[in-house]
Structure formats: structure tokens, C-alpha cells
């Protein structure tokens, strides 16, 4: 087990205080939603930890969308989430998630907010440099590597995978992600990876209205222009359940209160940011461990 780092905890506390101050300055309400939930997620590749008759949440997304639908237009939550089978330098099965929602905002607005929060956190740690963020698209990054995602087949992306998404992610990890060393927002993901984001079909390639933020080469945050149509939400849940079944896993239970709330959700952008990772990247640590209290 790693040693507990008092200095690491001090740095972490500075970042947490800066983040909360930023949200207070920008009119956000801090909420605390239940950690123990009846449905832990929709996404097929998340492994929730069961707990009595429910699960430990993998993110506060379902509950926060109910909060927004109930009439709170700017909310955030900062608290623990749990994902089984995730353990490594940049992953822990328990980790701290910062998630926020803003009614009427677009993805560009959330990029501006991430830039502001990262700058505030860096300043709280005494760092004086300014971060210069690039804003680009998934398809642009692949085309820089000689691949057109709109037409690429599974075998063009990877020789070892049978599904398009698996081939995409192997190529991403092999060739694209390692190049993302400078701060960057990557938007317009393949429609098959929309999760809970809206899909735009008016271009020559259907894309999920999502972005991921990379800082110091680490995936820091994931944002959605939130899906807010009940029928579309039910279809996504059914597709995710089918994927779960195809990989030999039990589908996640459906959270009926969440599905009902999606139908009443105004146009909203939402984002989840890994706080452990933010602290670690800004402190220059090799992983998230120095900012955490080792117990296992």
C-alpha cells in the first residue's frame, strides 16, 4: 500500500476550495444526491458495485438530471463515485467526480467553464502559467493520422477487433491519445458513442454532441449536450441493455424516475470532471494516488 501524503492532501484541499469558490461565483447551487441508487448507469462498459438492494452510483448523472428537471438551472455536485474493475495509475474504483449542469448552455460554454475552473485550480496551487486550449474534433484528429472516420471500416482501424467501437478505441489508444499532450477539447464523437448526448445528423457524418477534455495527456472531463427526449432515451437504454447482454453481462436496471425526468429536461449541457485527475495533473504527479488516502 502506498504511504499517505499529507502534502498531497493539502494540495487537493486547495483545488477543492478553488473549485467550490468558482461555482459560487458563477451562480451554481451545490447539491448532494444519493450515493446509493437503484440504477447505477446506462453505459454498457461500466461495472457497478452492488450494495444491498441497489448499487453505489457510477456517476450522479441520473439524480442531477432530475434536479435540473425540477427547476434548478445551474447545479453541481462534488462527491464519490464507484466503478468496479477499474484500477490503475489514473483509475480507482472509488474516485471523486465533479459534475455540473447548466440549462441553456452549449458545449462551447462548457469548454469556457472548464478553462476557467482549471485556471482557478492552478492559481490556487500557485501555478502562474496560462493554459492554451485547442478545440478540435475526433474526425480531425483521425484525419491527421490518415484515416477518414466517416468511411473507415473495422479492419482499417484495427486488425484485432470485431466491433467498430472496439477497433476505434484501440486505434485511439494506440495512435491518437498519446499525441494529446497539450490541453485540448475533442468534440463530435461517433454517434455509436453518444451515451446520453444528443446526436446531430445534419452533416455528412452523424456525431454525438459530446466533448472530452484532455489535460497533461489525461482524459479529464466528458461533456454532453444532454439528450432530452423521453423516447430517444428509452431507445438508448434498450440499445445499451442489448450491448450488455452481447458481452455476457446483466443489463443495468432502468431508473423510471430518471427516464420520466429526461422528457421534461430543458436544453441543457452537462459535464463530469475527475477531481483526482485534475489535482494530480496540476501537481505533476505520475497518477492520482498522492491525493488520496490509501485504505486497501
Amino acid at each position: 500500500m502506498n504511504a499517505l501524503s499529507p502534502e498531497g492532501l493539502r494540495q487537493r484541499a486547495r483545488v477543492l476550495a478553488a473549485v467550490r469558490a468558482w461555482f459560487a461565483d458563477h451562480g451554481y447551487l451545490e447539491v448532494q444526491t444519493p450515493v446509493l441508487v437503484p440504477s447505477p448507469a446506462m453505459e454498457p462498459h461500466l461495472y457497478a458495485l452492488p450494495c444491498e438492494d441497489g448499487f453505489l452510483r457510477t456517476s450522479p448523472e441520473f439524480a442531477l438530471k432530475r434536479v435540473v428537471s425540477a427547476g434548478l438551472p445551474r447545479v453541481y455536485e462534488l462527491g464519490p463515485c464507484f466503478r468496479g474493475r477499474e484500477s490503475g495509475l489514473w483509475h480507482g474504483r472509488e474516485f471523486a467526480m465533479l459534475e455540473w449542469y447548466r440549462v441553456g448552455a452549449g458545449l462551447d460554454d462548457l469548454m469556457d467553464e472548464v478553462e476557467g475552473i482549471v485556471a482557478s485550480a492552478a492559481a490556487a496551487l500557485g501555478r502562474t502559467e496560462t493554459f492554451s486550449w485547442r478545440r478540435t474534433q475526433v474526425r480531425t484528429l483521425f484525419s491527421e493520422a490518415g484515416i477518414d472516420l466517416a468511411t473507415a471500416t473495422v479492419s482499417e482501424l484495427s486488425s484485432r477487433d470485431s466491433t467498430w467501437d472496439d477497433a476505434f478505441f484501440r486505434r485511439w489508444l494506440d495512435r491518437i491519445e498519446p499525441t494529446l499532450t497539450d490541453p485540448v477539447f475533442v468534440s463530435d464523437w461517433p454517434a455509436s458513442q453518444a451515451a446520453l448526448a444528443q446526436v446531430r445528423t445534419d452533416g455528412d457524418w452523424p456525431v454525438a454532441q459530446r466533448f472530452e477534455a484532455y489535460l497533461g495527456g489525461v482524459e479529464l472531463a466528458n461533456a454532453f449536450l444532454e439528450l432530452n427526449q423521453r423516447e430517444a432515451q428509452e431507445l438508448r437504454i434498450a440499445e445499451a441493455a442489448a450491448t450488455r447482454t452481447s458481452i455476457g453481462e446483466t443489463p443495468h436496471p432502468v431508473d423510471a424516475a430518471f427516464v420520466e425526468a429526461v422528457g421534461r429536461l430543458p436544453t441543457t449541457a452537462g459535464i463530469a470532471l475527475g477531481i483526482d485527475r485534475l489535482v494530480a495533473v496540476l501537481c505533476g504527479w505520475p497518477g492520482i494516488e498522492p491525493g488520496r488516502i490509501p485504505v486497501f
Binding site: 453505459e43 462498459h45 477499474e86 490503475g88 489514473w90 489508444l173 466528458n222
Partner: peptide
């Protein structure tokens, strides 16, 4: 070796 997992994808080991 290191566990890696893209946000919306399957888990990999680098």
C-alpha cells in the same frame, strides 16, 4: 502494464 479505459469504451491494458 497499466489499466486504461476510454470514457465510453471497453477497458484495455497498455
Amino acid at each position: 502494464f497499466q489499466f486504461v479505459k476510454p470514457g465510453k469504451g471497453t477497458a484495455f491494458t497498455r
